[in-house]
Design a protein around this nucleic acid. Sequence first.
DNA 1: AATAGTGTACTAGTTAGATAGTACACTATT
DNA 2: AATAGTGTACTATCTAACTAGTACACTATT
Lengths: 118, 118
Amino acid sequence: MTLDFSRDKPIYSQLVDRICGDILKDKLLLGDRLPSVREYAVETGVNVNTVQRVYKELEAMNITETKRGQGTFITTSEARITALREEMKNQLAQNFLTSIEALGFSKEEMLVVLQKKS
Amino acid sequence: MTLDFSRDKPIYSQLVDRICGDILKDKLLLGDRLPSVREYAVETGVNVNTVQRVYKELEAMNITETKRGQGTFITTSEARITALREEMKNQLAQNFLTSIEALGFSKEEMLVVLQKKS
DNA sequence: AATAGTGTACTAGTTAGATAGTACACTATT
DNA sequence: AATAGTGTACTATCTAACTAGTACACTATT
């Protein structure tokens, strides 16, 4: 794999987003086991410590559970995932609106652009 | 003033965005003079070097012109500003769509959320 | 019991962004 | 000529994120 990361955001944060995305896209299912920190570090071309930070964040968000000696697993709580989906959708929309506001565009003109772009 | 900055993006970058926003919102007009680096540093509660970085970026984007000993001025090119507006609008839309894609949402469901919010 | 594979916890070093301070070159005003 | 206000260019220091390496505790398998 060896991903390429944006420079304007911490890598651990981008990896958290990536995993959340995989969950929301059902590439990762309830109860699935994530790769070990060492495996995932190799896969993504990142240091073990960075992956550890990622798993820590995910656990703090209550979307994974880690079992010492066994691995890190996606939560089995359907409700938590549903809530996550709503949270992220709202966050995304809110950030977008904030940016629009900051740059002095109107929501309407941005919607027009979005329609065109695919 | 003394702004509060987001931690997930360089301050100089946030200030560039801010000034671009002020231009697009006609708070800053063609030919207007920006505060001196020292003034703006005090206003925003930031170091002089950071402001210098901001003005350097703006000049590299061709939206300001600096005259040594006189100050930094918004370009007098109407065309450049118009182009800037389109660039930023497109960039914003593109980033939004990329995030949507990464998190596995559809454009349509996000548009629904956007309609509701604001 | 031994081993391999987990997560976890350290210490140390690197880099980019930001801060702090100083100095210099240019321009306009007095 | 003197002065004040510009942008510009340094050097030095600090912090967060990342990298690098090592060690330890727990679990499952053999």
